[in-house]
């Protein structure tokens, strides 16, 4: 099963924190591929995919951030109406909730990538269903070059 490594960073809700994180990543020469932010009134979690996840985690930890690393699925979908609907429609019968997902479009604009995290890390089951239906799960290298 192909999976990519996602980096997540705990952020207090105060101004300038995102700027600081992105600055650190930029200075380390790391390229962001996709990101999303989950927020509550008190804090946020920044999640991202980048070309050098181990290095990203390292430089952020050195700067004092609380950093997590998670394996997530990166599914290639046609960049057209209904692309996402079909993917989640396939997962629904499994009875597995999706903790979160976010998406990005590829360089050509023909294909998009949906990054998703099944609940309780049940990646294997979800990957199986998607692959059976003919979907491509990207390797880290494929995702970084997408």
């Amino acid at each position: 099963m192909n999976a990519v490594q996602q980096t997540s960073v705990f952020l207090e809700n105060k101004s300038g924190r995102l700027a600081e994180v992105t600055q650190i990543i930029a200075e380390a020469g790391i390229n962001l591929i996709a990101l999303s932010i989950a927020e509550t009134s008190d804090f946020g979690i920044l999640r991202f995919i980048c070309d050098q996840p181990d290095k990203a985690a390292q430089v952020l930890r050195e700067a004092g951030f609380s950093v997590g690393e998670t394996e997530v699925l990166a599914v290639q979908v046609p960049h057209q109406p209904g692309g996402l609907a079909e993917v989640v429609g396939l997962i629904k019968p499994l009875g597995i909730n999706i903790e979160y997902l976010y998406a990005f479009a590829g360089r050509t604009g023909q294909q998009a990538v949906v990054v998703l995290r099944p609940e309780n890390g049940r990646n294997q089951e979800v990957a199986g269903v998607l692959q059976q239906a003919g979907y491509v799960l990207l390797t880290p290298e494929q995702a970084y070059d997408f």
Partner: peptide, 18 residues
């Protein structure tokens, strides 16, 4: 302060901790 080693990619996990 949350621990630098604490792994959290889900809001729910942090809310449970809180």
């Amino acid at each position: 302060e949350i621990s630098p080693d604490f792994f959290a990619d889900r809001v729910g996990e942090l809310e449970d901790l809180n």
